[in-house]
Design a protein around this nucleic acid. Structure first.
Lengths: 241, 241
DNA sequence: TCAATCTGTGTACAATCGTTAACAGGAGAC
DNA sequence: GTCTCCTGTTAACGATTGTACACAGATTGA
């Protein structure tokens, strides 16, 4: 089983990251590093290339800075990518905190989909990066993303376990359920991102589908042990810690 | 591999590349178009960029052809990408045919994961393209992939429906189940592709997880209507073609 | 106060990019 | 035979790329 090794933000210097989304204002003064990060995400979201195909000069120009200034903050594009991932991780943890307030699994899944939706729409660029680099990025990038996802699967799993809804389900299977739910959400990212703008019914449709699918998962989990028992629990006693 | 080569001062440039790779045998003569397609997929699989960041010249060189020859077959890189998708679709349909031989849903899910695994490993480059362009590609590309996936969800759904395992489940919910399973498989693509080479136990672990997750889905589906009935069956009047 | 360190600038250069243009060999139709 | 596509070539272009270098103001520490 994957052990999540969460990479905490490395540098945490001023970290006065402005939450305001005003494009022009936030670029006017100071923190070039942050501007470069934001610029990179913007360019990636508009343009249709991955981090690998991202032009250093384009990023610098978008950040309102000369190309060579880039090297003052990042030795590499990949390093910038990893820094982006830190930001994305923070955002995701914020999301997790919002999801965690509920105490009932069923309600939690339903509500989670709602928060997930709003987070994707509010942090569009970040999710573009996330979804894109998960498959296309460098090995380091992919590994980092996989870690993030494993971390969330774990958190989700232990949340559900603490709720005690499925008391006989093993920890491993709790984790599998968690990663199943996370996978459902992550898999829906491209669908959410490509949602037609002025057509709320399509969004509603997708939302309902996701909610129903989430409930289906939970329902399966609730029957899991019963099923496992009937199946004369064959090859699952190999590791149960 | 020996071209006519009757120009006066030819440089014999491909003497090196013609021997090293097993792949190069198939592009010795004839069908340049196919060679370009294969070359593009190879470059994409090795390189870590999407189709957008793919160099026309690199593809041409890999195909053993001059850059300008590209235009004889494709006006555009995107057009080549769509052609690639056609090939990928064929491959997927081949896979579907192999999966369909089973008559029992539970067995089918278990077996499907196996065939899926072997297909991913056998067609690595194609799955790299598929997973990557699903999120990062051009709108046309993304739409085409979404279509493919919807097609497969549909096929899978009607297969399951024909088996009659969940008689009271609506067609819509059958479709949701289908896309849930497809999503599970697609979501696992990056995990499978990144599997360490010489470590079969990790692969086995992933396979078990996928199988269990698939079964969890089915289990949830089997309880679906019971649950729905209890839930004061809300409105589910959507259209599907 | 002087010196050092950051952080930005502009210039420059070699590679590589996509694309156009002119041209040549081969194959089939006549 | 000739004529005409089809498919490949080389040469060349202008643009854009990443990066190295030298330099300048601003901040900081002594």
């Amino acid at each position: 089983m994957v052990k999540p090794n969460l990479r905490i933000s490395s540098k945490d210097k001023k970290s006065k990251s402005s939450q305001a989304e005003d494009e022009s204002a936030k670029r006017t003064r100071g923190d070039t590093r942050q501007n470069l990060l934001d610029a990179a995400m913007e360019v990636m979201a508009e343009d249709e290339s991955g981090l690998a195909g991202l032009s250093l000069r384009a990023v610098a120009k978008r950040a309102g800075v000369s190309p060579t200034a880039f090297y003052r903050h990042f030795p590499d594009m990949e390093e910038l990518g990893l820094a982006m991932l830190d930001e994305i991780g923070q955002m995701l943890r914020r999301m997790l905190r919002e999801v965690r307030k509920v105490g009932d699994p069923q309600q939690m899944v339903g509500g989670s989909m709602l928060t997930f939706f709003s987070f994707v729409k509010q942090n569009r660029a970040k999710f573009v990066v996330l979804g894109r680099e998960r498959v296309g990025g460098s090995p380091r990038m992919r590994a980092a993303i996989r870690n993030q996802m494993a971390f969330f699967s774990n958190e989700l799993a232990s949340d559900i376990q603490l709720m005690g809804a499925f008391p006989q389900m093993s920890q491993n299977d709790h984790f599998r359920l968690g990663s199943l739910i996370i996978g459902l959400a992550v898999g829906a990212i491209p669908d959410i991102l490509d949602l037609p703008e002025n057509q709320p019914e399509a969004e509603q449709e997708l939302r309902i589908t996701m909610e129903k699918q989430g409930l289906m998962l939970l329902l399966g989990a609730s029957q899991w042990n019963r099923h496992q028992d009937r199946e004369t629990d064959n090859k699952d006693r190999k590791r149960r810690k």
